[in-house]
Write a protein that binds this DNA or RNA. Structure first.
Lengths: 238, 238
DNA sequence: AGACATGATGCGGGTTCCCGCAACGACTTT
DNA sequence: AAAGTCGTTGCGGGAACCCGCATCATGTCT
């Protein structure tokens, strides 16, 4: 069995390599890439089917690399391994995972035992496995109906890019007023109105972006990715 | 010589410990804290004067911890050690470093040799040492007069919190129009108008925050810290 | 079928924001 | 001293934004 590690931090990479050798004796070869682009190439070149993927990397992040890899070989098994339980990543992964391929998500703070378990479950057994900590996050944000639905999230991204209502409406195929309603529910769910002194009025749009950031609903990488999406959409619009 | 390591990632901490033992034979004792609060206590309790400080930590980030430590013992020698060459951190450090105390800033991607050099230079010799990569960043952002002055940066933070012009004016002691002028130059320096299709008009405020984030001028921690500042200011205002 | 909830859309008005124009003071240059 | 530069402030208008109110379509419950 051949495994690819995509991880730009050398310490973490070698720790992984260790744990991997220890947990999976069936591993015959370990490849290593230090960013998303190199990881993609490596995965393609050597037809690797088991991958451990860091999420935060410079040149191309793990989610984009995974999308490319899965587009090519949907049966690839990918274990994501990240520093943070960050909702933006979760949502990103949920959107790109193919119908019945194996994947997992585990935190770097997990114990070695749990990591080894995840390695075996996902890469060998082809199961789906999500770290308990992350599940907890999902629950938390799901319970007080703070959870955004997909169209709200889309509008949030557009807002975060600085688009105006009219352009969002055009891009998402909604009427102007509908976009504003989405914004309204965003303000509600993000707690734009409730936090700080209730007295002082804020710039709602900026505050929404602020809240989305500090609650880890989106992050800087999300913004960069969204910007790229926007640019391709703009290009295909005339 | 007694050294304190403040670092929440266990791999990095043990790597540091290794390098430290190797580079500085004069070290007699190594303490370890895994977040800013614990680091502060440790530093106070044991009157430690040489510290290696990670910047990104959960409970309290390295800059705040360093400020508290320096407030107590300005002669403390602190080597910051971080993943990113992030302008927000640079600015934060520049603002809190006491008159003539030794400090350094080195990236986690630096070679072991360079790390050892920095350890010796800062912690033993009491020099000031900044990683070449970081210096490059400073230059880059300084040259095309994109660099923000302090008052512009203050307005940027207020904007990022979602404050309205009037409130910013009150908080910073400027007139409304002056605030707007600051915003204007912010938009200029952040490239709010120039990027993307020049045709499509954007929400400038949101776009400014977006640009500030993707250029690493500010980050989520900055926002959280700024929010705390704002709250204390609000409390003392009536 | 009828009552009801939910979401999309239009209209109108009040507020905030962006910014051109102009005046003023402090400081520098010639 | 005269001229020029730079930052601050006021005024005013047009654009964008927020949102209450009303309407209409769709789907659900009784």
């Amino acid at each position: 069995m051949r495994v690819l590690i995509v991880e730009d931090d050398q310490f973490h990479a070698s720790y992984l390599q260790d744990a991997l050798a220890e947990a999976l004796p069936e591993v015959t070869e370990i490849f290593h890439a230090t960013d998303g682009v190199a990881g993609e190439e490596e995965a393609r070149k050597d037809e690797i089917e088991a991958i451990i993927m860091d999420l935060q990397m410079d040149r191309r992040n793990g989610i984009e690399a995974a999308r490319a890899i899965w587009a090519r070989r949907p049966q690839s098994r990918i274990l994501f391994w990240s520093n943070y339980a960050d909702e933006a990543y979760l949502r990103g992964i949920a959107q790109i995972v193919p119908e019945d391929s194996a994947y997992g998500y585990i935190l770097k703070t997990a114990s070695r035992e749990r990591l080894k378990l995840a390695l075996r479950a996902v890469l060998v057994e082809g199961q789906i496995m999500v770290d308990r900590e992350i599940h907890r996050l999902q629950k938390r944000s799901a319970s007080p109906r703070n959870r955004l639905d997909d169209s709200e999230f889309a509008v949030l991204l557009d807002l975060a890019l600085g688009l105006q209502d009219k352009l969002i409406a055009e891009r998402r195929g909604m009427s102007l007023r509908t976009v504003q309603n989405r914004l309204l529910s965003l303000y509600e769910k993000l707690g734009v109105l409730s936090d700080l002194d209730a007295e002082l009025t804020l710039n709602k749009r900026v505050r929404a972006l602020n809240r989305a950031l500090v609650t880890r609903m989106i992050n800087t990488e999300t913004l960069e990715a969204a910007q790229r999406d926007l640019e391709t959409w703009l290009a295909g619009r005339g």
